[in-house]
Write a protein that binds this DNA or RNA. Sequence first.
DNA 1: TTGAAAGCGCTAACAG
DNA 2: CTGTTAGCGCTTTCAA
Lengths: 342, 342
Amino acid sequence: MTERQTQHPQRGRAPTLIDVAKVAGVSPITVSRALNQPERVSEKARAKVTAAVEKTGYLPNMLAGSLATQSSRLVALIVPTIANPIFAETVRAITETLEQAGYQTLLGLSGYSEAQEQDLLEAILCRRPDGIILTGLNHTDISRTRLKAAAIPIVETWDLGDQPLDALVGFSHLDVGRSVGQYLLNQGHRRFAAISADDQRAEDRLAGFIQVLDEAGISPDAVERLETPARFSQGRQAFARLLEQEIRAEAVYCSSDTLAQGVLTEARARNIDIPGDMALIGFGDLDFAAHTLPSLTSVQINGAEIGYRAAQHLLSAMTGEHPPTEPVTIDVGFQIVKRDSA
Amino acid sequence: MTERQTQHPQRGRAPTLIDVAKVAGVSPITVSRALNQPERVSEKARAKVTAAVEKTGYLPNMLAGSLATQSSRLVALIVPTIANPIFAETVRAITETLEQAGYQTLLGLSGYSEAQEQDLLEAILCRRPDGIILTGLNHTDISRTRLKAAAIPIVETWDLGDQPLDALVGFSHLDVGRSVGQYLLNQGHRRFAAISADDQRAEDRLAGFIQVLDEAGISPDAVERLETPARFSQGRQAFARLLEQEIRAEAVYCSSDTLAQGVLTEARARNIDIPGDMALIGFGDLDFAAHTLPSLTSVQINGAEIGYRAAQHLLSAMTGEHPPTEPVTIDVGFQIVKRDSA
DNA sequence: TTGAAAGCGCTAACAG
DNA sequence: CTGTTAGCGCTTTCAA
C-alpha cells in the first residue's frame, strides 16, 4: 500500500516537460517544440500544449535546456563598482539591451582589483555564459588564459588599446588628459594643480594631462594622488591641503567629477569663486555631471552609449552573424563641455 | 581515414569531468568527489586529480552540476534602478555578501514597474535560483503566484507591511513621512510645501507627512507631484514653479535627496539661504547625502544595511538552518540627521 | 576509499 | 507534423 502516486505532478516538485506532455496527451518533444519553435507544430497540438502549460503552471527549466543546447543565454558583466553613476549607466544600458534580446546578465563587481576580477571570472565561467563584457584592458594572466579557453565572444570596455582580447568599446584616456590640458592652456592658464585617483585609467588621463603641459614647457605646481575609489570628501581635503601649502593654481584638474565636486565645495567654503577665481575641470557622465556640477567644466563621457554598443556588438557576435571576427575597436569618444553657472 | 580523435580533449570542446578522469587515471566520480568533498578521497587520488585539472584547464560545468544537484547557487535580485545610489549600495552589499558564501547574483532592473518585474521574474525563475530578493511589497498577482510556486526563500526589501510573501527587511515609509513632519513642526515651522515623486514608497512617505500636519491642523500650501524616477532638474523646476506661484514656505519637504538637491540649486541661484531663509529636507542614503548635500537636513537610510540583512537572511534560509520559517520582519529603521553647513 | 548504473530536464538528430 | 533514441555533464544512489 506504499505505492507512490505518479499519475499527476507531485506536491513539492516543479512540473516538468513530461508532466505537461502527459496532461496535453502528446510527446515531450512536441511540448518542447510548441514552446520553442511554435511554427513547427500543428495548431491543434499547440493549443493542447498551451492549455496544459497553463493548467500545470509549467516553467521551463533552463538549466536543463542550456545543458542540452550548449547555450545559456547568459552574459557575464564585470564592472569595478556601481556606486559610480558612470558605471551604473553602462550596466543599465547593457542589461536593458540584452534583456530585450532574451539574454540575462550576471553582474560581478571587481572593486578595481584584477585579483577579484579573476575570482569572479572563475565562478562565472562555470555557468557557461554565451558572452562576457569586461571593464578595462588589465587582467591577470590566469584571467586571460581562462577567457581564451572559454572561447566565447568578449567585449572589453572603457578603454582603448593595442591588445584587446577580442572586441573593444571605449575611448583613449591619454587623449582625454591631453585634451583637458590643451583646453586649459588655450584658456590662458599657466599654473596648474592636479588631483587624481590611482587606478589605471585615471593614471592614463593624468599622464596625458602632464604630457601636454610638458610639451608647453610647464609642469604642475602640485599633483595629489588618491586611492581609488576616491570620494568627495577626499577631493575636498586634497584641495584644502593644496591651499595650506600656499599652492594657488589658476586651474585645477580632477580625475573625476566626484573629486571636482569636493574641490568645488571646499572652494565655496573659502569664498573662492569657480570659475571666476579658478578654473576647475572634472570627468564623468553627462547626466550625472549636469545634475551635480552645474557650475564647472567637465569631460563628458556617455556611459550609456558604451553599454549599448558593447551589448550590441556582443549580441551580433553571439548570434554568429559574423564569423570568428577580427578584433574590432569602437571609439566612442568624449567631449569637453562648459556648462552655465548655477 | 576519417576517424575522429577521441584520445585527448578535442579542440573547441571544453574539457569535461571525464577528460580529467582519463588523464588522472581514475573514474569520473572520484574526480567529482576530489573537487567537491576532498575529505572523502585518498590523498593520492586527490593529487592525481589536482594535477589533471591543472593540465587540462578544467572548469566545472555548473549547468550540469546544478541540474543534478537541484541547486543553482544563484540568487535573483530585482531593484527598480541602480542609477539611484541608494539602491546601488544595497546591490553592492547583497552581491558582496552572497559572493562570499559562494552564490552569484542575477540582477534585474524593474524601472519601478510591476509589469516589468513580472517579465523579469518569468525569465529569471527559469534559471532555478535558490533564492530571490525583491524591492517593495507590490507585485502583480501573476508574480505572486509564480513566486509561491517556485517554493524558494524570498526576501522583500525597502518597505514594511502586513502581507509579506516570506521575509521582509525594510522600514516604514509612513513613519518616515510622519517623523519628518513632526521634526519640522518641532522646529516651529507652520507653512509647508512638498515636492514628491509618485512611486508607492514616495507616496507613502508623503501621506505620513501630510497626516502629521493634518493632526496639527495644518495643510501644506502646495504639493508638487513628479513622475518617478524624479531627476535633479525636475526638483529644481518644481521649486521654481512654487516661487512663481508666490508660495513662500518656511520648510520644503522633498521625497528624495535628488529632488532636494535641485531645490537647493535653484535656491542658491535666487539667493535664498538654506537653511537660513528656508528649511529643506530630503531622504536618502547616508553616504550619498553627506557627499552631495552638505548643507541640509535629510532622512538617512542605510542602503548597505538593508542589503546585508537581506542577504544574510536569505543565506540562512537557503542553507536550511531554520525550517520553512514563519515570515520574518526586520525593521532597519531610519534617522533624521542635521548636517553642518558647507 | 572507489566504482557502476541511473537519472536530473531538456533537445539534437534521426526516423516515421 | 510527430515520435523515438540518445546524450548534454554532472551527481546520487548503491554496491564492491
